[in-house]
């Protein structure tokens, strides 16, 4: 009695948080177990854990690749699309957020393209990239991205790019617009040029929003790559792995393992960026 009382009321909030995390995980696994007894197709937690171990150590039966190899392949694609998206979205967001003319010119286009789901770009991506495959610049870009001659990989990177682009763009625009005008006035009284205002005021002041956009964008990109890999043409990736396991019939434990890998990677990416965010913004 007494010890269980202390279990719940430990003074350190950090430890309490951890305990809650463990408790919720245990409850989840118990519920999962009960459910798996009931629905035969759902693998039990133990089956899943065993399969997971197999997949990590031995690999899957079709291509003989381990789960982490597949995951790493997906991560590489995500990072490529995400970095391109970031590099384009941030400057564009600053320009749209700061200059009315750019906003008037581009807002309509952005708002029309934004509702198109990233996955809806896949067919067009295949058509375009197949058509462009022989051109020099396609080969240069593909080479620079380390994608070889795979049109499918190019499409995946493109889909991730589309997915990551809009959250980063919109958050950047919002952040730039929300910059307290007094900071800009201060800079102007010191004689700052527009360039200095952008670099020394607008960018640091909107950084919290930009980082939020990056975090959301990376998350969306991660969802996109998995879905894009399922569509076909890819030679590796968690999405392909899950789809292959489904195609060979059954393999529900393997499918669940793939999903767990996706969830874990997404979780870790988010935590890393949250950590960066807290580190960089001790001022806010």
């Amino acid at each position: 009695m007494k010890s269980s009382y202390y279990f719940w009321t430990d003074i350190s909030p950090k430890w309490r948080e951890r305990k809650f995390r463990v408790v919720s995980l245990v409850i989840f696994i118990v519920l999962w177990y009960v459910l798996s007894l009931w629905i035969r197709e759902l693998p039990t937690p133990v089956e899943t854990a065993t399969t997971f171990y197999q997949l990590i150590t031995v690999g899957e039966p079709i291509l003989g690749r381990t789960l982490q190899e597949h995951t790493l392949a997906s991560i590489k694609i995500v990072l490529k699309g995400f970095i391109i998206g970031t590099v384009i979205a941030i400057p564009l967001g600053i320009i749209i957020g700061r200059y009315k003319l750019a906003e008037n010119l581009l807002n309509f286009i952005v708002e029309t393209f934004r509702p198109i789901p990233p996955l809806a770009w896949i067919p067009l991506g295949f058509v375009l990239f197949r058509g462009l495959k022989e051109t020099g610049w396609f080969q240069i870009i593909s080479h620079l991205l380390g994608l070889g001659t795979s049109v499918a990989a190019m499409v995946q990177v493109f889909v991730v790019f589309v997915g990551a682009f809009f959250p980063i763009l919109l958050n950047t625009i919002q952040g730039v617009k929300a910059v307290n005008p007094i900071y800009i006035d201060v800079a102007r009284t010191f004689g700052a040029t527009e360039r200095e205002i952008v670099w020394k005021i607008v960018i640091p002041a909107s950084f919290p929003n930009i980082i939020t956009g990056i975090r959301v964008g990376l998350g969306v990109g991660w969802m996109c790559v998995v879905a894009a890999e399922m569509i076909g043409g890819s030679s590796s990736g968690v999405g392909l792995f899950i789809w292959d396991m489904y195609s060979i019939g059954g393999g529900s434990a393997e499918i669940v393992c793939g999903m767990i890998a996706i969830g874990l990677v997404g979780y870790i990416m988010n935590e890393v960026l949250l950590f960066v965010q807290r580190r960089v913004f001790k001022w806010s």
């Binding site: 007094i182 006035d185 201060v186 010191f190 004689g191 700052a192 200095e196 640091p204 001022w283 806010s284």
Partner: peptide, 24 residues
């Protein structure tokens, strides 16, 4: 110019705030 709302840059510490004009 000294503003009523201070207008200090929250992302800069005191030293870097005071350095701002000199930087410009």
């Amino acid at each position: 110019f000294v503003f009523q709302e201070y207008g200090l840059f929250p992302w800069r510490n005191v030293l870097r705030n005071v350095e701002f004009g000199l930087e410009i």
